[in-house]
């Protein structure tokens, strides 16, 4: 089993899922979110993929009750859209009404809005993930979460550890390279000696 210290260092990096681009609390009017894009990045699907990988986990952490469904298809020429479902003021919407769960085969299409719901779509194709996020925050009215002073100091610690790790990695790499070089030299010398012996 992975050692405790290494595991704890990794968990400190969880700060990254609490803070950063996408850490925002959605207003209560947002009922659900649906994303649709292709598996690979060509034909303008890089931005949506990045948005899913980077911003969506943070959004999910801060809004665990909001269903966020990703529908990935193998059709690269297909659309890349984000659908935001809003509750109309005064209306009550059944939670999770007819929402399919995420799919990798492209069969979880965005459902039509339920009664008392409106849909706002964002076209994500050929756009960078940060632009998508900016658009998303503006259209959804989400409030970004600021890190607490405690978290900020923890973040600095994590960064320090990362920097120290970089120094250590270089040092160890030098050592390993040196060892490898010596080994190679020895092997070459041995093979040359064997060749001379064979020639005699």
């Amino acid at each position: 089993m992975v050692g405790v210290i290494r595991r704890m260092n990794k968990l400190n990096a969880l700060l990254g899922v609490r803070n950063g681009p996408g850490a925002a609390i959605l207003p209560s009017e947002v009922t659900r979110i649906h994303l649709e894009f292709a598996h690979k990045f060509n034909d303008g699907h890089m931005g949506p993929r990045k948005f899913w990988r980077e911003a969506l986990p943070r959004l999910k952490f801060w809004n665990p009750a909001v269903p966020m469904v990703v529908n990935r298809s193998h059709d690269q020429s297909g659309p890349a859209t984000l659908s935001l479902y809003f509750r109309e003021p005064g209306a009550t919407v059944q939670p999770d009404s007819a929402m399919p769960s995420s799919s990798t085969e492209g069969d979880a299409k965005a459902p039509p809005p339920a009664e008392g719901e409106i849909v706002v779509t964002i076209d994500m194709k050929h756009r960078r993930s940060d632009m998508i996020l900016k658009d998303f925050l503006a259209k959804s009215g989400a409030v970004p979460v600021k890190p607490t002073p405690q978290e900020e100091s923890l973040m600095r610690d994590v960064q320090e550890l990362e920097e120290r790790g970089k120094v250590d990695r270089e040092r160890v790499k030098k050592m390993i390279d040196h060892e490898k070089r010596e080994k190679a030299l020895m092997a070459q010398a041995h093979s040359e000696a064997a060749a001379i012996k064979a020639a005699l």
Binding site: L14, V17, L35, P64, M68, V70, S101, T104
Partner: peptide, 20 residues
């Protein structure tokens, strides 16, 4: 809560919780 955030967008029958 954390794990659901990390697994967002994965098909829920494919991704599993595991206990060690």
């Amino acid at each position: 809560r954390y794990l659901r955030a990390f697994e967002v967008g994965q098909p829920p029958t494919v991704s599993k919780y595991e206990l060690h």
